[in-house]
Design a protein around this nucleic acid. Structure first.
Lengths: 195, 195
DNA sequence: CCGTTTTCTTGTCTTTTGTTATCGTTTTGA
DNA sequence: TCAAAACGATAACAAAAGACAAGAAAACGG
């Protein structure tokens, strides 16, 4: 049955297959949560405590530098989301996560996941796979920043598996994501449509 | 005793403490290797098979784009080095690694590590910690590229725990690492010394 | 539904970065 | 040891991006 819980389980099982017994170790700790548009799910300076998966809506992951927000990731339905680095380092979060639209989540305490890492080899493997998967994503992102021009990065966004970003995220936040100003992005779009 | 093997063990134990029994599972698979200056340790297009730790020397991790080499990481003594992403994805490597000086390594097959992940909870945890540690590093790097100017990135290199890069890496490769041209880096250095 | 706010575009000007080329200096390898 | 290659600084010019401002368009909230 396609309950929110089962959707989460399916996402987890993309990394590691779980027995029902494994799953039952996490299941009681799940909680449904609504995060209203423009409110925070995680906040800079606070300890990361919870992670979750988006059932409906979308969220933004951002740093604050010189009082300016720098958006670094966007999350949509079925994405795992949370102050992951804070959770694994045990340091206060350097980032905030807010909702760009009313967002329905299924969340659980990272602490519970850490307990499962200790208790259970399958969950420990999930922890490895999760980190590896995240690493692959960031590395790809970093290489894009290092080797592609802003225009190429935008085209890559159009071509790749990230159209959701184009479709659902305001342009000035996309500019942010690409490491350029909104004005520059507008000009890039102008250039492209003329081709 | 400070053998090469023990140095590697110490590096691994920075992430996860090992019992002697755990260690003995990897020990027989270690191999000393010399990689001569300007020769490859890993090559784009090939499957990643081995990872290792530098005993002496230094290495460079780079992508090739439009026939140009884009250096992304540098490794020195005690650093773990290898085509890690290729190893974990099972895809051909997108990067090459070469030696910038004659480099002495202690290497082992990633395949053996994967066997240990399957066989042993401690090693599985090491796999998680390793990926998490790598993730933290790349994320920091990515945020720098996204939120700092080239000059700020260079200053960060000077100030941070990366002086080795300044000291031991040719400037045009550092420029590469910062995502700028050698000429730009030369200007930045000129500007800084005048302050 | 209307007024306000946010978002996007466009123009001008300035700054930064890239490109290309030149010139010492250093390093390298035969 | 010596010629060739690599490296770094610098200059002149071109291209790209940023800053700032004004105005149109779209979204939002009461």
């Amino acid at each position: 049955m396609s309950t929110p819980e089962n959707t989460l389980r399916a996402q987890i099982e993309k990394l590691v297959p779980l027995s029902d017994a494994d799953w039952d170790l996490l299941l009681p700790h799940l909680e449904l949560r609504m995060v209203k548009k423009n409110t925070l799910f995680a906040e800079e300076g606070k300890m990361g405590k919870e992670v979750g998966m988006i059932l409906e809506g979308c969220m933004r992951h951002y740093y604050t530098r010189d009082g300016e927000e720098r958006s670094t990731y966007f999350y949509f339905e079925n994405a795992l989301v949370g102050p992951y680095l804070s959770c694994i380092t045990g340091q206060p979060s350097q980032i905030s996560i807010d909702a760009l639209a009313d967002t329905q989540l299924i969340v659980f305490p990272y602490k519970r996941l850490a307990e499962l890492f200790d208790a259970n080899k399958t969950w420990e493997r999930f922890g490895r796979k999760l980190a590896e998967w995240a690493l692959i994503g960031v590395e790809e992102r970093m290489v894009g920043l290092l080797t592609l021009s802003p225009e190429e990065r935008y085209n890559q966004l159009l071509a790749g598996n990230k159209q959701k970003i184009i479709e659902r995220i305001p342009q000035h936040l996309i500019a942010n994501y690409l490491g350029i100003t909104p004005v520059s992005l507008s000009r890039i779009r102008n250039r492209i449509t003329k081709k």
